[in-house]
Protein backbone atom coordinates (compact mmCIF):
# COMPACT_ATOMS: atom_id res chain seq x y z
CA UNK A 1 0.00 0.00 0.00
CA UNK A 2 2.66 2.49 1.07
CA UNK A 3 4.74 1.61 -1.96
CA UNK A 4 1.78 2.09 -4.25
CA UNK A 5 0.94 5.44 -2.75
CA UNK A 6 4.55 6.58 -3.07
CA UNK A 7 4.59 5.57 -6.72
CA UNK A 8 1.37 7.38 -7.39
CA UNK A 9 2.66 10.40 -5.52
CA UNK A 10 5.76 10.64 -7.68
CA UNK A 11 3.61 10.31 -10.78
CA UNK A 12 1.39 13.05 -9.44
CA UNK A 13 4.34 15.42 -9.08
CA UNK A 14 5.52 14.59 -12.59
CA UNK A 15 2.06 15.23 -14.00
CA UNK A 16 1.81 18.58 -12.30
CA UNK A 17 5.26 19.55 -13.60
CA UNK A 18 4.27 18.68 -17.17
CA UNK A 19 1.00 20.57 -16.92
CA UNK A 20 2.78 23.61 -15.48
CA UNK A 21 5.38 23.58 -18.25
CA UNK A 22 2.71 23.31 -20.91
CA UNK A 23 0.85 26.17 -19.29
CA UNK A 24 3.98 28.26 -19.32
CA UNK A 25 4.64 27.58 -22.99
CA UNK A 26 1.04 28.17 -24.04
CA UNK A 27 0.74 31.29 -21.97
CA UNK A 28 3.73 32.86 -23.58
CA UNK A 29 2.73 31.83 -27.06
CA UNK A 30 -0.58 33.68 -26.87
CA UNK A 31 -0.01 37.03 -28.55
CA UNK A 32 -0.23 40.10 -26.38
CA UNK A 33 1.11 41.09 -22.99
CA UNK A 34 -0.41 42.17 -19.70
CA UNK A 35 0.14 45.84 -20.48
CA UNK A 36 -1.46 46.01 -23.93
CA UNK A 37 -4.56 47.84 -22.82
CA UNK A 38 -2.80 50.44 -20.78
CA UNK A 39 -2.15 52.80 -23.60
CA UNK A 40 -1.78 55.73 -21.22
CA UNK A 41 1.20 54.44 -19.36
CA UNK A 42 4.50 55.76 -20.51
CA UNK A 43 7.42 53.57 -21.61
CA UNK A 44 9.46 54.04 -18.43
CA UNK A 45 6.62 52.91 -16.21
CA UNK A 46 6.01 49.95 -18.46
CA UNK A 47 9.67 49.01 -18.37
CA UNK A 48 9.64 49.24 -14.59
CA UNK A 49 6.56 47.09 -14.38
CA UNK A 50 8.08 44.51 -16.68
CA UNK A 51 11.16 44.50 -14.56
CA UNK A 52 9.08 44.04 -11.42
CA UNK A 53 7.29 41.04 -12.90
CA UNK A 54 10.56 39.77 -14.42
CA UNK A 55 9.08 39.94 -17.90
CA UNK A 56 12.27 41.51 -19.23
CA UNK A 57 14.30 38.42 -18.46
CA UNK A 58 14.93 35.78 -21.13
CA UNK A 59 12.38 32.96 -21.35
CA UNK A 60 14.42 30.26 -19.66
CA UNK A 61 15.12 32.50 -16.69
CA UNK A 62 11.43 33.30 -16.45
CA UNK A 63 10.74 29.57 -16.55
CA UNK A 64 13.07 29.00 -13.64
CA UNK A 65 11.43 31.77 -11.63
CA UNK A 66 8.13 30.17 -12.54
CA UNK A 67 9.27 26.78 -11.25
CA UNK A 68 10.48 28.42 -8.08
CA UNK A 69 7.11 30.04 -7.54
CA UNK A 70 5.45 26.65 -7.97
CA UNK A 71 7.70 24.96 -5.44
CA UNK A 72 7.28 27.73 -2.89
CA UNK A 73 3.67 28.14 -3.90
CA UNK A 74 4.08 31.88 -4.04
CA UNK A 75 3.01 33.43 -7.30
CA UNK A 76 3.40 37.01 -6.18
CA UNK A 77 0.84 39.74 -6.78
CA UNK A 78 -1.62 39.87 -9.62
CA UNK A 79 -0.67 42.19 -12.44
CA UNK A 80 -4.17 43.61 -12.84
CA UNK A 81 -4.91 43.95 -9.16
CA UNK A 82 -1.45 44.63 -7.79
CA UNK A 83 -2.65 45.00 -4.23
CA UNK A 84 -3.80 41.37 -4.14
CA UNK A 85 -1.58 38.33 -4.28
CA UNK A 86 -2.47 35.35 -6.43
CA UNK A 87 -2.69 33.25 -3.30
CA UNK A 88 -5.29 35.61 -1.89
CA UNK A 89 -7.34 35.35 -5.06
CA UNK A 90 -7.17 31.57 -4.93
CA UNK A 91 -8.07 31.51 -1.26
CA UNK A 92 -11.14 33.57 -2.03
CA UNK A 93 -12.28 31.85 -5.21
CA UNK A 94 -11.38 28.23 -4.67
CA UNK A 95 -13.61 27.42 -1.68
CA UNK A 96 -16.62 28.56 -3.68
CA UNK A 97 -15.69 26.52 -6.74
CA UNK A 98 -14.87 23.60 -4.52
CA UNK A 99 -18.23 23.80 -2.83
CA UNK A 100 -20.04 24.01 -6.14
CA UNK A 101 -18.06 21.10 -7.59
CA UNK A 102 -18.34 18.85 -4.58
CA UNK A 103 -22.03 19.39 -4.01
CA UNK A 104 -22.58 18.77 -7.71
CA UNK A 105 -20.68 15.51 -7.70
CA UNK A 106 -22.44 14.34 -4.57
CA UNK A 107 -25.83 15.17 -6.04
CA UNK A 108 -24.91 13.47 -9.32
CA UNK A 109 -23.57 10.36 -7.60
CA UNK A 110 -26.51 9.97 -5.30
CA UNK A 111 -29.29 10.66 -7.76
CA UNK A 112 -27.48 8.89 -10.61
CA UNK A 113 -27.00 5.64 -8.70
CA UNK A 114 -30.50 5.69 -7.26
CA UNK A 115 -32.01 6.38 -10.67
CA UNK A 116 -29.86 3.76 -12.40
CA UNK A 117 -30.56 1.14 -9.76
CA UNK A 118 -34.31 1.72 -9.86
CA UNK A 119 -34.24 1.55 -13.64
CA UNK A 120 -32.38 -1.76 -13.53
CA UNK A 121 -34.69 -3.24 -10.92
CA UNK A 122 -37.72 -2.21 -12.97
CA UNK A 123 -36.06 -3.26 -16.21
CA UNK A 124 -38.29 -2.35 -19.17
CA UNK A 125 -40.84 -0.85 -16.80
CA UNK A 126 -42.11 2.71 -16.67
CA UNK A 127 -39.41 3.92 -14.27
CA UNK A 128 -36.80 2.45 -16.58
CA UNK A 129 -38.15 4.26 -19.64
CA UNK A 130 -38.54 7.55 -17.80
CA UNK A 131 -35.07 7.34 -16.31
CA UNK A 132 -33.46 6.50 -19.62
CA UNK A 133 -35.33 9.28 -21.43
CA UNK A 134 -34.06 11.66 -18.80
CA UNK A 135 -30.57 10.23 -19.25
CA UNK A 136 -30.51 10.74 -22.99
CA UNK A 137 -31.75 14.31 -22.66
CA UNK A 138 -29.41 14.98 -19.75
CA UNK A 139 -26.39 13.75 -21.62
CA UNK A 140 -27.13 15.66 -24.80
CA UNK A 141 -28.03 19.07 -23.40
CA UNK A 142 -24.86 21.08 -22.59
CA UNK A 143 -24.82 22.55 -19.11
CA UNK A 144 -24.62 26.16 -20.26
CA UNK A 145 -27.78 25.70 -22.33
CA UNK A 146 -29.50 24.11 -19.38
CA UNK A 147 -28.27 26.93 -17.17
CA UNK A 148 -29.78 29.56 -19.46
CA UNK A 149 -33.06 27.65 -19.68
CA UNK A 150 -33.23 27.29 -15.91
CA UNK A 151 -32.56 30.97 -15.34
CA UNK A 152 -35.16 31.89 -17.95
CA UNK A 153 -37.89 29.56 -16.68
CA UNK A 154 -37.38 29.03 -12.99
CA UNK A 155 -35.85 32.34 -12.02
CA UNK A 156 -37.30 34.87 -14.46
CA UNK A 157 -40.68 33.50 -15.56
CA UNK A 158 -41.76 31.62 -12.45
CA UNK A 159 -39.67 33.64 -10.02
CA UNK A 160 -39.17 30.58 -7.86
CA UNK A 161 -35.45 30.80 -7.25
CA UNK A 162 -32.79 33.50 -7.44
CA UNK A 163 -31.11 33.79 -10.83
CA UNK A 164 -27.52 34.52 -9.83
CA UNK A 165 -24.78 34.80 -7.20
CA UNK A 166 -23.85 32.48 -4.40
CA UNK A 167 -25.21 33.99 -1.25
CA UNK A 168 -27.52 31.34 0.21
CA UNK A 169 -28.37 27.65 -0.22
CA UNK A 170 -31.34 28.76 -2.29
CA UNK A 171 -28.94 30.44 -4.70
CA UNK A 172 -27.06 27.20 -5.09
CA UNK A 173 -29.94 25.16 -6.45
CA UNK A 174 -29.99 26.33 -10.06
CA UNK A 175 -26.24 26.24 -10.74
CA UNK A 176 -25.98 22.81 -9.17
CA UNK A 177 -28.95 21.58 -11.16
CA UNK A 178 -27.36 22.89 -14.35
CA UNK A 179 -24.01 21.35 -13.57
CA UNK A 180 -25.21 18.03 -12.12
CA UNK A 181 -27.72 16.99 -14.76
CA UNK A 182 -25.20 15.71 -17.30
CA UNK A 183 -23.12 13.70 -14.82
CA UNK A 184 -26.29 12.36 -13.19
CA UNK A 185 -27.47 11.11 -16.55
CA UNK A 186 -24.14 9.46 -17.31
CA UNK A 187 -23.96 7.81 -13.89
CA UNK A 188 -27.58 6.65 -14.13
CA UNK A 189 -26.98 4.97 -17.46
CA UNK A 190 -23.78 3.37 -16.36
CA UNK A 191 -25.25 2.17 -13.08
CA UNK A 192 -28.26 0.74 -14.86
CA UNK A 193 -26.30 -1.29 -17.37
CA UNK A 194 -23.77 -2.55 -14.87
CA UNK A 195 -26.51 -3.30 -12.35
CA UNK A 196 -28.40 -5.30 -14.97
CA UNK A 197 -25.28 -7.33 -15.57
CA UNK A 198 -24.53 -7.84 -11.90
CA UNK A 199 -28.09 -9.00 -11.24
CA UNK A 200 -27.57 -11.96 -13.57
CA UNK A 201 -24.46 -13.10 -11.71
CA UNK A 202 -24.34 -16.37 -9.84
CA UNK A 203 -23.58 -14.71 -6.54
CA UNK A 204 -26.84 -12.80 -6.77
CA UNK A 205 -28.66 -16.06 -7.44
CA UNK A 206 -26.88 -17.51 -4.46
CA UNK A 207 -27.88 -14.54 -2.31
CA UNK A 208 -31.47 -15.19 -3.39
CA UNK A 209 -31.11 -18.84 -2.51
CA UNK A 210 -30.06 -17.78 0.98
CA UNK A 211 -33.48 -16.22 1.44
CA UNK A 212 -32.12 -12.71 1.98
CA UNK A 213 -34.42 -9.73 1.59
CA UNK A 214 -34.39 -8.02 -1.81
CA UNK A 215 -33.21 -4.79 -0.22
CA UNK A 216 -30.23 -6.48 1.33
CA UNK A 217 -29.41 -8.21 -1.92
CA UNK A 218 -29.44 -4.99 -3.89
CA UNK A 219 -27.57 -2.87 -1.39
CA UNK A 220 -25.14 -5.35 0.07
CA UNK A 221 -24.52 -7.70 -2.85
CA UNK A 222 -25.29 -5.87 -6.06
CA UNK A 223 -24.66 -2.18 -5.59
CA UNK A 224 -21.01 -2.34 -4.62
CA UNK A 225 -20.17 -4.47 -7.63
CA UNK A 226 -22.38 -2.42 -9.91
CA UNK A 227 -20.65 0.78 -8.85
CA UNK A 228 -17.16 -0.31 -9.95
CA UNK A 229 -17.51 1.08 -13.48
CA UNK A 230 -18.95 4.27 -12.03
CA UNK A 231 -15.91 4.70 -9.82
CA UNK A 232 -13.59 4.23 -12.78
CA UNK A 233 -15.16 7.14 -14.64
CA UNK A 234 -15.36 9.30 -11.52
CA UNK A 235 -11.89 10.68 -12.20
CA UNK A 236 -12.64 12.06 -15.63
CA UNK A 237 -16.11 13.06 -14.54
CA UNK A 238 -14.69 15.00 -11.65
CA UNK A 239 -12.37 16.82 -14.02
CA UNK A 240 -15.33 17.61 -16.24
CA UNK A 241 -17.42 18.95 -13.40
CA UNK A 242 -14.64 21.02 -11.90
CA UNK A 243 -13.84 22.66 -15.21
CA UNK A 244 -17.53 22.92 -15.96
CA UNK A 245 -17.85 25.07 -12.87
CA UNK A 246 -15.92 27.80 -14.72
CA UNK A 247 -18.64 28.23 -17.30
CA UNK A 248 -21.45 27.89 -14.81
CA UNK A 249 -19.79 30.38 -12.49
CA UNK A 250 -19.62 32.84 -15.32
CA UNK A 251 -23.31 32.39 -16.21
CA UNK A 252 -24.56 32.60 -12.64
CA UNK A 253 -22.07 35.33 -11.65
CA UNK A 254 -20.62 33.15 -8.94
CA UNK A 255 -17.35 34.59 -7.57
CA UNK A 256 -15.42 31.32 -7.75
CA UNK A 257 -12.09 30.51 -9.30
CA UNK A 258 -13.60 30.41 -12.74
CA UNK A 259 -14.23 34.08 -12.65
CA UNK A 260 -10.62 34.96 -11.83
CA UNK A 261 -9.32 32.37 -14.22
CA UNK A 262 -11.27 33.64 -17.22
CA UNK A 263 -10.45 37.24 -16.37
CA UNK A 264 -6.77 36.44 -15.96
CA UNK A 265 -6.55 34.88 -19.40
CA UNK A 266 -8.31 37.80 -21.03
CA UNK A 267 -5.92 40.17 -19.28
CA UNK A 268 -2.79 38.03 -19.79
CA UNK A 269 -2.38 38.28 -16.03
CA UNK A 270 0.50 35.80 -16.03
CA UNK A 271 0.88 35.17 -12.30
CA UNK A 272 -2.83 34.51 -11.89
CA UNK A 273 -2.95 32.19 -14.90
CA UNK A 274 0.03 30.26 -13.64
CA UNK A 275 -1.15 30.13 -10.06
CA UNK A 276 -4.68 29.02 -10.81
CA UNK A 277 -3.65 26.48 -13.44
CA UNK A 278 -1.02 24.88 -11.28
CA UNK A 279 -3.21 24.88 -8.24
CA UNK A 280 -6.19 23.57 -10.12
CA UNK A 281 -4.32 20.82 -11.91
CA UNK A 282 -2.66 19.77 -8.67
CA UNK A 283 -6.09 19.56 -7.13
CA UNK A 284 -7.47 17.51 -10.03
CA UNK A 285 -4.56 15.09 -10.06
CA UNK A 286 -4.95 14.66 -6.35
CA UNK A 287 -8.66 13.89 -6.76
CA UNK A 288 -7.87 11.28 -9.41
CA UNK A 289 -5.43 9.75 -6.97
CA UNK A 290 -8.17 9.62 -4.33
CA UNK A 291 -10.54 7.96 -6.79
CA UNK A 292 -7.96 5.24 -7.38
CA UNK A 293 -7.62 4.60 -3.69
CA UNK A 294 -11.38 4.44 -3.29
CA UNK A 295 -11.52 1.93 -6.14
CA UNK A 296 -8.97 -0.28 -4.46
CA UNK A 297 -10.96 -0.02 -1.30
CA UNK A 298 -14.20 -1.07 -3.03
CA UNK A 299 -12.72 -3.96 -4.95
CA UNK A 300 -10.64 -6.25 -2.77
CA UNK A 301 -9.14 -7.91 -5.83
CA UNK A 302 -7.14 -4.81 -6.66
CA UNK A 303 -3.78 -5.33 -5.09
CA UNK A 304 -3.43 -2.16 -3.07
CA UNK A 305 -2.64 -4.16 -0.01
CA UNK A 306 0.28 -6.47 0.35
CA UNK A 307 0.08 -9.85 -1.29
CA UNK A 308 -1.45 -12.51 0.87
CA UNK A 309 -0.94 -16.24 0.55
CA UNK A 310 -3.24 -17.92 -1.91
CA UNK A 311 -4.91 -21.11 -0.87
Amino acid sequence: MAKYILKRFIMMIATILIISTLTFVLMHSIPGSPFDEERTSNPTIQANLEKFYKLDEPMHVQYLYYLKSIVTFDFGPSIKKPNESVNELLARGFPISFELGMVTILVALLSGTILGTLAALRHNGIIDYLAMTFAVVGISVPNFVLATLLIQQVAVTWELLPAATWSSPLHMILPILALATGPTAIIARLTRSSMLEVLTQDYIKMANAKGLSPIRIVIRHALRNALMPVVTIMGTMLAGILTGTFVIEKIFAIPGMGKYFVESINNRDYPVIMGSTVFYSAFLVFMLFLVDIVYGFLDPRIKLHRKEGDA
Binding site: Q201, K205, M206, A209, G211, L212, H221, N225, P300
Partner: peptide, 25 residues
Amino acid sequence: QLRKIQGVDISMIFQDPMTALNPTL
Protein backbone atom coordinates in the same frame (compact mmCIF):
# COMPACT_ATOMS: atom_id res chain seq x y z
CA GLN B 1 -42.98 -16.94 2.93
CA LEU B 2 -40.51 -18.55 0.55
CA ARG B 3 -37.62 -16.62 2.04
CA LYS B 4 -38.28 -18.31 5.38
CA ILE B 5 -37.54 -21.63 3.67
CA GLN B 6 -34.78 -20.67 1.24
CA GLY B 7 -31.40 -21.26 2.73
CA VAL B 8 -32.95 -22.45 5.97
CA ASP B 9 -34.80 -25.66 5.10
CA ILE B 10 -33.72 -26.00 1.49
CA SER B 11 -30.30 -24.91 0.27
CA MET B 12 -28.54 -24.92 -3.01
CA ILE B 13 -25.00 -25.37 -4.25
CA PHE B 14 -24.11 -23.91 -7.58
CA GLN B 15 -22.01 -25.26 -10.37
CA ASP B 16 -19.25 -22.72 -10.63
CA PRO B 17 -17.55 -21.86 -7.36
CA MET B 18 -15.59 -19.12 -9.13
CA THR B 19 -18.72 -17.05 -9.69
CA ALA B 20 -20.98 -18.16 -6.85
CA LEU B 21 -19.25 -16.06 -4.22
CA ASN B 22 -19.52 -12.31 -4.11
CA PRO B 23 -16.03 -10.92 -4.87
CA THR B 24 -16.47 -7.86 -2.68
CA LEU B 25 -17.65 -9.46 0.56
